[in-house]
Design a protein around this nucleic acid. Structure first.
Length: 424
RNA sequence: GUGGGUGUAGCUCAGUUUGGAUAGAGCUCUGGAUUGUGGCUCCAGUGGCCGAGGGUUCAAGUCCCUCCACUCACCCCA
């Protein structure tokens, strides 16, 4: 039997409602914050990711789905979205039409990792990016948007973590100081951290190993080494968040895994998701556009891990919108002929209506109606046909009444209206 | 890439310790009890390459080997 390949999952009908809810809430909120959707290719030239994410990162060095196409061009299934948005921003000269640009995207990403809770090889992100704004107020606005999003989704137990990772001026200084400090304790660091020391010393900061953590207790902190411009930016972001009364934690060990980040870095953690508990990650990347040959353009953005948000919502048993359902019970071919146009008409009017397709017994069809969770069943058999009436049965209250054909729509509309009223 | 746990019906799981005859239960599904009135109850039925391959044995779901998948953690990240 052929099965889906490792780390690639079907999202089944029983789950899609919650996915649609997440997508819908995001889209609505993004639009009200002035973002427009951009749809991007899943395949890009490998060089795009190597140059943006960083050659030494795990993503690029061992997690990308890369292959040559039929003419030998190196292609890669996108492992993240920001690089493509930047590419498109430059390619279509979006900087020319306005001072700044707000874009969002959503779709699958691919990383060749070992699957575990909250991590698969194909996963989905919803991301947002703002180009052309250096002001700290946009950093803060993104965090406020995300906070609103959590509220709108009904997602609780989230924590916002904030840090500044400095810029090209001050980060190298901090890196040097940190390296000097860690080098002295090199022997006590875990094996992985000794590797990191060479490849990416900043990543030692968020190591989970206890020995490393205790060494880090006394290590220099990035916030002490920020240049005055970065310091000012960070202070203003925090001040605005306080003004918005948005709760957040400063975490000077928060480091982003992609090389392009500058200044503001943030993460949203959801407790109870297991080891992969970051549902949102993002930050500023002021040099990326320029490094790809575009005009110097500050930028800031984030990406939401959809699987993780969906998991968190499923754990919370989030209520989804209920819909009134109607089931049409039909007995005999003649009745069926009569019913088909009516069903079609009612569907056109927007009713959620199903019928029995297989000419089964009345009992079996009512069971179907049950399974369909119909609030109402319409029954048309030979007796009703002769009397030119239809039975309207209230499935919850087990009562039924006779209705003439031409009144069905009107009566159902009344029932639906009172249902919607009661829901509210 | 490394380590732990788990693979038996559509789903949830017994059975594997100590090898033994047609491999079980609950739920679901189909039909009936009730000729045209659902949910509850009762009865019956459908549904298994026991993850795959190899080995030991008179005999393997059960023991041994190899592989695969799922899962959790490391790692990494959203």
């Amino acid at each position: 039997m052929i099965k889906a390949i490792r780390g690639f999952k079907d999202i089944l009908p029983s789950e899609t409602a919650i996915w649609q809810k997440v997508e819908g809430v995001c889209r609505k909120l993004f639009h009200s914050y002035g973002f427009s959707e951009i749809r991007l290719p899943l395949l890009e030239e490998t060089a795009l990711f190597v140059r943006s994410i960083g050659e030494e990162t795990d993503i690029v060095s061992k997690e990308m789905y890369s292959f040559p196409d039929r003419k030998g061009l190196g292609l890669t299934l996108r492992p993240e979205g920001t690089a493509s948005v930047v590419r498109a921003f430059i390619e279509h000269k979006m900087y020319a039409r306005s001072q700044y640009k707000k874009l969002y995207y959503l779709g699958p990403m691919f990383r060749y990792e070992r699957p575990q809770a909250g991590r698969s090889r194909q996963f989905h992100q919803i991301g947002a990016e703002v180009f052309g704004l250096a002001a700290p107020s946009i950093d803060a606005e993104l965090l406020v948007l995300l906070h609103d999003l959590m509220v709108e989704l009904g997602l609780s137990n989230t924590t916002f973590y904030l840090n500044s990772v400095g810029c090209q001026e001050c980060r190298p200084v901090f890196k040097k100081v940190l390296l000097e400090y860690l080098d002295k304790k090199k022997g006590d660091l875990c094996f992985d951290c000794q590797q990191r020391l060479v490849k990416n010393p900043l990543r030692v900061l968020d190591c989970k190993n206890e020995a490393c953590q205790s060494i880090l207790q006394l290590s220099p902190s990035i916030v002490e080494y920020l240049c005055s411009a970065c310091q000012k930016h960070y202070a203003e972001v925090k001040s605005l968040l306080s003004f918005y009364q948005l709760p957040f934690h400063q975490n000077d060990r928060l480091v982003r895994g992609l090389d392009y980040y500058t200044r503001t870095a943030f993460e949203i953690i959801h407790e109870g998701l297991g080891a992969q508990n970051a549902i949102v990650g993002g930050g500023r990347y002021d040099n990326l556009v320029e490094s790809f040959g575009g005009p110097a353009t500050p930028a800031v953005g984030f990406a939401i891990g959809m699987e993780r948000v969906v998991l968190a919502l499923q754990n919370q048993n989030i209520a989804l919108d209920n819909q009134q359902r109607i089931f049409f019970v039909v007995l005999g071919d003649e009745a069926k002929r009569k019913v088909l146009p009516l069903v079609r008409h009612l569907r056109k009017k927007g009713f959620f209506i199903e019928m029995s397709y297989q000419g089964r017994s009345l009992k079996a069809q009512l069971k179907e109606a049950n399974r369909f969770e119909a609030q109402y069943a319409l029954i048309l058999g030979e007796e009703e046909l002769a009397a030119d009436k239809i039975i309207l049965k209230d499935m919850n209250r087990s009562i039924q009444e006779y209705v003439t054909m031409d009144k069905v729509e009107e009566i159902l509309e009344g029932k639906m209206a009172s249902f919607i009223k009661n829901e509210k």
